[in-house]
Design a protein around this nucleic acid. Sequence first.
DNA 1: AAAGATGCCTGTAAGC
DNA 2: TGCTTACAGGCATCTT
Length: 274
Amino acid sequence: MLRGVPELPEVETIRRGIAPHVSGRRIEAVTVREPRLRWPVPNDLAARIVGRMVLGVERRGKYLLFDLDRQRLLIHLGMSGRLYVLTPDVTPIKHDHLDLHLSGNLLLRFHDPRRFGAVLPLDGDTQHPLLAHLGPEPLSEAFSGEHLYHLSRGRSSPVKNFLMDGHVVVGVGNIYASESLFRAGIRPGLAAGRVSLPRYVRLVDAVRDTLERAIRQGGTTLRDFSGAHGEVGYFQQELMVYGRDGEACRVCENPIRRQVIGQRSSFYCHCCQR
DNA sequence: AAAGATGCCTGTAAGC
DNA sequence: TGCTTACAGGCATCTT
């Protein structure tokens, strides 16, 4: 079974799961047990967010953005991050790095063994550098075959790297990139600039379909955010190629191949993808 | 400008 | 069994 790497569908599912629990509550205190995350949790975190009301939770790519009324809190789950909504009596375990104490006797707890995640306060009105140059959301109208086609002209890097570039489109990680390229029938190592417009149109459909289906499934498996440290059901969907090196293609039964592209494992079917 | 490499981390699995 | 080592991956940032 695969690890629960939070990709966009997981982050969206988490957003939907925690938003109703935290919205409308005031941040009463902050406990930081381990500030050494992707970027250090700033010393003035409490000063900046305590006393503020959580108005809602938004998502940009894989960033969760808590709307704190003219202030925001950015949370990224990195590779291994989890968020738990708990009552304050639950004893923290290893890697429970940070708690937001909320009004109404509730806790939002950030847990992240690998510490690739981030918890950063942002000014509400200014555009933060991390968010300033991101590509369109994959589920928005702005993400289109034309968009990919025009951006990719003249690019020699593999289409898989191109698809995973957050300046091109946000939220498509290694797993869904491989899956989407399979569904679109495009080999991951093909130069992005050599993929035609019709094929990019197909790829956009494949990305949307893959992500939307994963969100729908996440919604059915990720239901109880009040339960303590129970594992949530990431990746319930059947993967067509990811991690299936040497196994039979679900379409043509030829063995799935693994190829390292841009220091990342890529999986594809030599027969179904051209 | 674009592409490739690097670093940050620890749990897990594979190898000896 | 216990140790060592490779690997996984998001993404900013540095180098070429």
